[in-house]
Simulated scan of single mutants.
Amino acid sequence: MFFSNLVDTADHHADLRESVGRLVGEFGRKYFQECVAKGEQPDALWKKLGEAGFLGVHIPEEYGGSGGGMAEFNIVIEECAAQGCPMLYLVITSICAPIIATYGSDELKDKWLPGIADGSRKMAFAITEPNAGSNTHKVTTTARREGNGWVLNGAKYWTSGIDEAESVLVVARDAELAESTGKSALSLFVLPTNTPGITMQKIEAAVQSPENQFSVFFDDVKMDADALVGEPGQGLRQVFAGLNPERISAAAINNGISRFALSKGSAYAQDRTVWSQPIGAHQGVAHPLAEAYIEVQAARLLNARAAQLYDAGEDAAEAANMAKFLAAETSLKALDQAIQVHGGNGLSLEYGLADLWFIARLHKTAPVSREMILNYVAQHSLHLAKSY
Rank of each mutant, 00 (worst) to 15 (best):
W46C: 02
E371I: 11
A299C: 09
Y351S: 04
I294H: 06
E61D: 11
A155W: 14
Q41T: 09
L353I: 04
E72P: 04
H363V: 04
G235W: 07
A178D: 11
G242I: 03
E211F: 06
R173D: 14
L49T: 03
Y351H: 10
L55D: 02
L356G: 01
G68V: 05
F3Q: 13
E34R: 15
A185Q: 10
S266Q: 15
T93K: 11
R17S: 09
F32D: 02
L335S: 00
A267E: 15
S134N: 10
R259G: 05
M1G: 12
A101P: 12
Q308H: 02
A82T: 08
R145S: 08
I359C: 04
Y376C: 15
G68L: 10
G242V: 02
Y293V: 08
S331F: 01
S94G: 13
A312T: 01
I116N: 06
R300I: 05
S381C: 12
D110G: 10
T141N: 07
W275N: 08
G242F: 00
F3R: 09
I59M: 08
Q340K: 14
L301F: 07
G84H: 03
L384A: 09
S249N: 05
A328G: 07
G313E: 00
M223V: 03
S215H: 08
A81T: 03
A251S: 14
I75V: 14
Q337S: 05
F218Y: 10
G149M: 06
A126R: 12
G104P: 01
E72Y: 13
H287L: 13
A338M: 04
V239K: 01
A250C: 15
W158R: 13
A385T: 13
W46D: 00
E179F: 00
L326S: 08
P278Y: 00
Q213A: 07
A185N: 11
G346K: 03
G56F: 02
R22N: 13
G21K: 10
D224Q: 12
R361P: 09
L243Q: 03
I162R: 00
Y351T: 05
M372Y: 09
S187Q: 05
D15H: 12
A44P: 02
P245E: 03
